[in-house]
């Protein structure tokens, strides 16, 4: 099995998994917060926030990648600040790939969680309040557990999106083997060289298997949680 892929191909698979995992985990707290603000908040500019969150979904990925390059590049205002203050560099690093994937996956993450938050019966929260639970405890013991199916669904969507992300990543952090060459970039590279067809096909198969596995896992998880909650 291990011989099926070359070391360079394994590196791409491994890097893709690492980038996607980090993209999903790092954006989760912000995703949950944004989903709650959009679902429950009543403030001026909510529509604007909603628009900004969804922007990567409708913009060409190249545009998103270029905006990231402008903002988070070494000379970009945010990138320069982060490098000076914390020594964090995104440009042409795997962290940059993770950032690009996180931004692209964020709308999907927020959307799934938001729907789940909106489905939470607020009367249950009232009931928890009358039982003596402080609002913070109500959030932790009632709202969050009831939102869990949406959070998991959002995480899997975000992860899957990150696994397949190509345009924004290659624009922002290029296609450096071992550093920013994720699975789609590697497939793209194979298709650009003579005789790369078999390599491209192998990685395509890997890609299909990984996507399918994520999908099945999410289905199984959703069913299990759904049974436990039985939101009737």
């Amino acid at each position: 099995m291990l011989d099926a892929l070359s070391p360079a191909e394994w590196t791409a698979v491994h890097l893709s998994l690492k980038v996607s995992l980090w993209a999903t985990l790092a954006s989760l707290p912000a995703g949950i917060a944004t989903a709650f603000v959009l679902a429950r908040g009543r403030f001026w500019g909510r529509a604007v926030l909603n628009g900004i969150v969804h922007l990567p979904l409708i913009l060409p990925p190249v545009v998103t990648g270029y905006i990231l390059l402008l903002l988070f590049g070494r000379k970009g205002p945010i990138g320069a600040f982060l490098e000076q203050a914390f020594g964090i560099v995104f440009a042409f690093r795997w962290t940059g790939a993770a950032l690009a994937c996180a931004v692209m996956g964020f709308p999907l993450l927020v959307r799934a969680i938001r729907l789940s938050v909106e489905a939470v019966d607020r009367r249950l929260e009232d009931a928890a309040g009358t039982l003596g639970a402080h609002p913070a405890w109500v959030f932790l013991t009632v709202t969050l557990p009831l939102t869990l199916p949406g959070i998991l669904a959002g995480m899997i969507l975000c992860f899957a999106k990150a696994m397949g992300e190509f345009g924004a990543t290659i624009t922002f952090v290029s296609n450096i083997p071992g550093e920013t060459q994720t699975l789609p970039s590697a497939i793209y590279t194979f298709t650009q060289v003579p005789g790369g067809d078999t390599g491209a096909l192998r990685l395509t198969l890997v890609s299909v298997v990984l996507s399918m596995a994520a999908l099945l896992a999410s289905e199984a998880m959703a069913r299990r949680i759904g049974r436990r909650l039985d939101l009737s």
């Binding site: 019966d121 249950l124 009358t130 039982l131 003596g132 609002p135 039985d230 939101l231």
Partner: peptide
């Protein structure tokens, strides 16, 4: 006084049992 500090029990019409 907010609800959670009143220490009043409340039995709702629809029960409102926590499903999780």
């Amino acid at each position: 006084v907010p609800a959670h500090r009143r220490r009043l029990g409340y039995v709702f019409q629809e029960g409102r049992i926590f499903p999780h």
